[in-house]
Design a binder for these strands. Structure first.
Lengths: 271, 271
DNA sequence: TTGCTCCTCACGTCACGTGAGGTGGC
DNA sequence: TTGCTCCTCACGTCACGTGAGGTGGC
């Protein structure tokens, strides 16, 4: 017979934990003194305590530990619980590993440059979206070539949508592709219509992507700086890009672009 | 200007989270309607929201995120916070990886044998302990050879300790080593004395070890089964042993050993 | 008598999720 | 009028840690 303190030392747990396991019915003392309420444990209850600890260390809740210990689960159910746990553990390890990579990238930045780097870049799961779009071609990727192409496209697109009685359901999205003739420029806007109508605009489903996103403030002519910073972040954090970026125009109310706010979405995968 | 719902959709967070960040002062709406209490956000607040999410994803608490965002920490302090986070993340990844290995070992057992294996084996950090001990030699590792050596050793040891006025401060520990002449048998018991006295017993410091531990119930002649199970567990869970096991005698009140309870400690490292 | 161990409440944790109950504009 | 979105409380979560306040045996 052990007192709760001696038993706790043996099992390398706290006295409070043993009291808690008693309270929730997981592990009750072999004997409780009626007069004083003192708990007494048998040596072989250490085996039960070890089972509790082992299952708890796998990440099961105390309630799950209880049902497993009481043999209230069949082998099939236990199998299912273990597979679920495997999935959850793998997901958490992946998330923690990504976080660790980022922490190390920030440490390197600080040690190298003596300052912290801007941390407004974040990964997102961008959902698939149906858009109406017009396309054009630009000579190069430089803002000075893109702007004169994309802006007229949007004016035509809005006009055509209005004529077709189609209402945008989200923010304008520009995206790009390499073509033999130059940069394919897509001026798109989310819509909620069935595809197949042959208007002047095309209905396209943009696929869901994982993206590194940054908020760009100011004129689109300055977007290269934001794209650079995003590209550096992608490299330092163990990703690589899988295509050209998208631009989501969040705020285009300012007349001269100086108050514009754009979200840059750079498609990525783990390198 | 975005309503809270629109802003939440943009940032891929819940409305509740935005209200919470408002409540704790992390990210307050650009404007709150005095009459209705409606919150309104500016597009460029998405950059702040992204910073919050990025820092939160690194595992910082919201309070830490707040102090970092408010630039209340120096670069040195941030450096320290990041190093601490790195350590914590690495530790959690290691723990989760060990748990994942164990989950997979259990899944294999179930799929192979159609039943779950006993899960009372658990790893422990066994602390260093000072013992008084007597040693002998046994012909082999079989219980039939060990028992007749260890039992008289303990009788002599207890007798010698009593004569020397030394009181045991814990459970008897037997441990073993390979020697050219056979198995070195150590009958030890924790004591709280200074080393160096030259009595009939030796004062030895047993080192701290990481151990896989199992509770053995019943006579020591049956210990091989428990040792086998422990050895299998060690192999299946990605460890290897680094020496011979210790036996901690938790309950030796029964006269005929059938009620004895012993903790087996098998020293391990990650394979 | 002083420590030590034991006891029973009961609050606090952390970042929200989830109703409950109600309001305002299309 | 019916949905939809917004609002403010306020409870619940999970496994204990941490006092507060008190008792019993050496």
């Amino acid at each position: 017979m052990f007192t709760i303190g001696a038993f706790a030392r043996l099992g390398l747990v706290s006295v409070r934990m043993l009291r808690h396991y008693d309270a929730v019915g997981l592990l009750q003392p072999a004997r409780v003194d009626a007069a004083t309420g003192y708990r007494f444990y048998e040596a072989d209850q250490l085996a039960t305590l070890n089972r509790v600890i082992a299952l708890k260390d796998l990440g099961f809740t105390l309630e799950q530990v209880g049902t497993i210990l009481d043999e209230k689960v069949s082998v099939e159910e236990l199998h299912g619980m273990l597979r679920l746990r495997r999935t959850e553990l793998a997901a958490r390890i992946a998330a923690d590993s990504a976080a660790l990579t980022q922490v190390e990238a920030r440490l390197r930045t600080i040690e190298r440059e003596g300052r912290m780097h801007p941390d407004e870049i974040v990964t997102k799961q961008v959902a698939a979206v149906r858009v109406a779009e017009l396309t054009g071609v630009a000579q190069s990727y430089g803002p000075q070539h893109i702007g004169p192409v994309v802006q007229p496209l949007y004016q035509q697109l809005m006009c055509a949508l209005a004529e077709a009685g189609v209402t945008p359901v989200g923010h304008a999205i520009a995206y790009y592709e390499d073509t033999p003739d130059g940069i394919g420029v897509h001026a798109a806007v989310p819509v909620d219509v069935e595809p197949g109508g042959d208007g002047p605009f095309a209905i396209v489903d943009l696929p869901a992507i994982e993206a590194a996103t940054a908020i760009h403030r100011g004129p689109m002519d300055d977007v290269l700086g934001t794209l650079d910073a995003t590209a550096r972040w992608i490299e330092e954090n163990g990703y690589r890009t899988t295509g050209l970026h998208r631009e989501v125009y969040l705020d285009t109310t300012g007349a001269d672009q100086s108050d514009w706010v754009t979200e840059i979405q750079e498609p990525i995968v783990r390198a």
